[in-house]
Design a protein around this nucleic acid. Sequence first.
DNA 1: CTCGCTCCCTAGCGAGCGTTAGTCAGTGGG
DNA 2: CCCACTGACTAACGCTCGCTAGGGAGCGAG
Lengths: 203, 203
Amino acid sequence: MPSTDTRTGPDARAVVTSEAVLDTALTLFAQRGYHGTALSQIAEILGIRTPSLYNHMRSKQELLETIVRQTLDHVLADFHAAVKGTDDPVVQLREATRVYALRHATHRREALIVNRDTTSLPEPALTAMRQRRREHERAIRSVIARGIESGTFAVGNAGLASFAILEMSVSIARWFREDGPRTAEQVADEYAEFALRIVRYRP
Amino acid sequence: MPSTDTRTGPDARAVVTSEAVLDTALTLFAQRGYHGTALSQIAEILGIRTPSLYNHMRSKQELLETIVRQTLDHVLADFHAAVKGTDDPVVQLREATRVYALRHATHRREALIVNRDTTSLPEPALTAMRQRRREHERAIRSVIARGIESGTFAVGNAGLASFAILEMSVSIARWFREDGPRTAEQVADEYAEFALRIVRYRP
DNA sequence: CTCGCTCCCTAGCGAGCGTTAGTCAGTGGG
DNA sequence: CCCACTGACTAACGCTCGCTAGGGAGCGAG
């Protein structure tokens, strides 16, 4: 949440941090998209004029790049932590899906921006970010492939299954509400179960 | 594909139809997003100047609205045709998923635009389009709910499952290639099978 | 007290946007 | 043959965009 000054009145003067700028950008980019958001809108919410934003950031593009890079790094870190403890494809796929789904429920704005606006990044950032996503997808795919090899999973094509699992999780960011009937953890558990069903793991 | 004049040379004069404008908009909106696309880019591809576009359309917004409305209408028509012949939830869910997935493979550009840029529509079109999507989602959900009631499906929550099934299908538009290893029909069949697995239908 | 730093402000630049108005060349039908 | 229509053009509009320059108020440290 943007931390503005507590003073009010005619000569109230907002005091803004770079975290507040990033947070507001997060909200607006998620709502209207990167190209659909003007810096003036970010500034207005923070209670300052547009040029003052430049005390806290270098450019609009840098804002987007920061958001995307941080998010993808977290996703990869989540994944590696999730699969670390075991070699069992069942546990690995369940855990990898669970943390991925959980992140999309708890960090909805970041997820929406990454999925909608990554392509608006300039090169070379675009290629770097695409590579991070591919890395994650390939890792999931190889977990499924090992499960197929060992006869634990029964699915025609590991690639198709990995796409389906990843993208159904991404969608959580679109509909999940914190004040809804289910907690983020409950939803993540359900989706982890869906993932195992897709690869037809029968306990 | 844009149908331009066959003449070439220094004084070649492009001749453009409104279908060609829509088609080019489809390609660019899908590639760069609605806000990320300028009319000048559409005009350049068609080989005309920007103002000439107005001989074939009313506004940029109208282009987007046409794309979204047509696509969602086709999705709903697909669905109703798919479930018409039977009351069996298994067949209905498989067919509904199959035609939805198939459309996302064969009409990738439309699907990408609907999913990314629907929120850029002005009211009241936005509400109308959201309602069409909800209608579709609710219809899928009720198929699943009937399957649960009859004991054919075993899944905790029909809503969660319907979201997962719909959104994994949407993702096809992101990776499918016509010249890839699988045909659109094959992919659609696989995803229809995934849908039944998610609701744990055991043949 | 005062110096220097932080961070806001106003003013303004240059570019690009979607859109309108008005013009003119080519084409097909009477 | 000519006239109306189609569909391109140039010119220009008002607006918004991201961003820069330069100035000044408030605050903490010495």
